[in-house]
């Protein structure tokens, strides 16, 4: 039995205008940051979006967080169309979807105390009693491994890892159902990463919250995600359960991505696959399959027909003409 997914994105597109001219600006093109992607996240699970810089991961996150309006397509959270919300339903949405950003040095306001930072989603949306806010903040700080009396400090008095814990606490305080994790550990020291990743996984088990994990680091993805979607130039190239994807990467781009990651042991013999060329500009993406100019298995058809998503195994979808 499959429960209704907590998050469902359908045909999501975001095109940014490219303008020219100082006084009378005219649109000369469109950056197709996200170009028609669909996915869903079940309750209590983690979907990872992986890909190179500029492939549209962060724009996708912004669309889901309602920080950007999509050009077309819809996002449903808990069955409700996110971009059509207003009034009380919007306030409700603001409590059930939260985010943790990449850089803990810029994601906490330097002029607010930890208590105010953590309590913000409660104060803004629910107008709960002050005493209740206090006890909730203390409880949640305990959950993320900070001491309640640290609530009186300012962010600059903490280390990077602790700051990220504060950000997690603030995201968790309003009992959300979905947290968007935008590169939650990539700005941290390697020694701290494992701590934060463990914390996030533990919290997921405890609270049953779903994560949308934006990452470019494959080991992070493998550790945290139940399902992985590989993005390239605004499109999803391959989507599968984590174990399946790591065992059997099928799309040539996924193979190249995995081959570029460092192996766990230097003696492991691996298939080398090095891509030539740069990522093409999303202003004028290649025709047909977006990956064809760099693909080692390119066929004439690839430049003409855009491949559709095909299921090659249970829970394993690939958009490639090879299959």
């Amino acid at each position: 039995m499959r429960a209704e997914p907590i998050l469902r994105a359908e045909g999501l597109k975001k095109h940014f205008p490219v303008t020219e001219g100082l006084l009378w600006s005219t649109v000369v093109g469109w950056v197709k940051a996200v170009d028609g992607i669909s996915f869903s996240i079940p309750q209590g699970q983690t979907l990872a979006l992986v890909g190179e810089s500029g492939c549209g991961k962060t724009t996708t996150a912004k669309l889901i967080l309602r920080l950007e309006e999509p050009t077309s397509g819809q996002v449903f959270v808990d069955g409700k169309n996110v971009h059509a919300l207003s009034g009380d339903v919007l306030k409700e949405y603001r409590t059930i979807v939260q985010a943790v950003f990449q850089d803990p040095w810029s994601s906490l306001s330097p002029r607010m105390r930890v208590r105010e930072i953590v309590a913000e989603p409660l104060v803004v949306n629910r107008r709960v009693a002050a005493a209740e806010v206090e006890s909730r903040v203390a409880e949640i700080l305990g959950r993320v491994g900070l001491r309640p009396e640290q609530a009186n400090l300012y962010p600059h008095e903490f280390s990077g890892g602790q700051r990220q814990r504060i950000a997690v606490a603030s995201a968790l305080v309003s009992d959300p159902k979905l947290i968007v994790l935008d590169e939650p550990v990539s700005a941290l020291d390697v020694s701290i990463r494992a701590q934060i990743m463990n914390l996030l996984v533990d919290l997921q088990k405890q609270y049953g919250v779903s994560y949308l994990l934006i990452a470019h680091h494959l080991a992070t993805t493998r550790f945290m995600a139940h399902e992985v979607a590989v993005m390239y130039l605004g499109k999803i190239m391959e989507r599968a359960k984590t174990e399946e994807l790591f065992k059997n990467p099928s799309h040539p781009y996924t193979k190249a991505l995995f081959s570029a990651a460092l192996p766990a042991h230097p003696d492991i013999v691996r298939e080398e696959m090095i891509l030539s060329g740069e990522v093409p500009s999303p202003i004028d993406p290649p025709s047909g399959c977006r990956f064809h100019p760099r693909c080692p298995f390119v066929m004439p058809r690839c430049a003409e027909v855009e491949p559709q998503e095909k299921a090659i195994a249970a829970d394993h979808v690939v958009a490639c003409h090879l299959y």
């Binding site: 912004k62 979807v97 990449q102 810029s106 994601s107 989603p121």
Partner: peptide
């Protein structure tokens, strides 16, 4: 452009706030 503004918007803070 800093992330804490994005976080505030995600938390539901109004423009005035």
């Amino acid at each position: 452009e800093r992330d804490f503004i994005a976080r505030a918007r995600v938390a539901g803070a109004s423009h005035t706030r």
